[in-house]
């Protein structure tokens, strides 16, 4: 891989919430432009922490994050948004007392001049949201909230989109919808890094997967290889329907 098609690189990140307690001990990742990356791992492995540290919400104690070669380690979230990173948290990912349209407007807060234009683009991806734009986000179902959250993160037209378990809590067909939509977004040129519990489905659509365990990125391979990897099958996919 040549150096200039790497868009995001994380180098041996050590990070944590409380002083003296490291949740991540050496996470590394290299993502090429336009890739769809899946991160899988057991509960509590530090997947969410990893995404949050990439997005400046968890303090990185050691290591470096670069975007297009520029050091973005520990930048504030609003600065990272300006650099072209979007983030959808695992929980609490909408503003409940704001309407859908206001949620999307907040997503485009730094580029309000192009709000209308982006709204039209996002409206093609999520037509339901436009129909119901005056509804309060707090009154939406989990699946609808997930849509609002993803749409909000796309409002700034990010280069890299970080998704934390976008399919969590959704019914199987809604999960499928989410994966398909993620793939669609990725095809429009957005590099996507997604954390998923639904490892099998995630690895099926991913270009490449990372396995995260106990705060370290244990290994990486293409989605197809990981799906066949006996160790991954044993630990994360189970034997059912393998």
């Amino acid at each position: 891989m040549t150096k200039d098609d790497v868009i995001l690189r994380a180098d041996n990140l050590i990070a944590g919430y409380l002083p003296g307690v490291n949740i991540l001990n050496g996470c590394s990742m290299e993502v090429k432009k336009g890739e769809l990356i899946g991160i899988i791992g057991p509960n509590g492995a530090g997947k969410s922490t990893f995404l949050k540290s990439l997005f400046g919400l968890v303090n990185i104690r050691e290591g470096e994050v670069t975007l297009n070669g520029a050091n973005i380690t520990n930048l504030r979230a609003d600065e990272l948004v300006r650099h072209g990173i979007g983030f959808v948290p695992q929980t609490d990912n909408v503003f409940p007392s704001l309407t859908i349209e206001e949620n999307l407007e907040m997503g485009a807060y730094q580029a309000h001049a192009s709000f209308k234009k982006r709204l039209a683009v996002i409206g093609d991806l999520f037509p339901v949201l436009i129909d119901r734009r005056h509804q309060r986000a707090g009154s939406l179902s989990g699946g609808e909230r997930q849509m609002v959250a993803m749409a909000r993160a796309l409002m700034m037209d990010p280069q890299v989109l970080l998704l934390d378990e976008p399919s969590a809590g959704l019914s199987p067909d809604r999960q499928d919808e989410t994966f398909v939509r993620t793939r669609t977004i990725n095809r429009t040129g957005v590099t996507v890094i997604m954390v998923e519990q639904n490892a099998r489905r995630c690895l099926q659509i991913c270009d490449r997967g990372y396995v995260l365990d106990q705060g370290t990125t244990a290994y990486t391979a293409t989605g197809k290889e990981l799906l066949k990897d006996p160790k991954v099958i044993e630990l994360y996919l189970g034997t059912l329907g393998a």
């Binding site: 979230a77 948290p89 807060y109």
Partner: peptide, 19 residues
């Protein structure tokens, strides 16, 4: 509206690019 967004969820507000 950003003020209301911060009231709702400050870290999501930051993640949306609000200072």
């Amino acid at each position: 509206r950003a003020t209301r967004a911060v009231s709702d969820n400050p870290s999501l507000a930051a993640a949306s690019g609000i200072k």
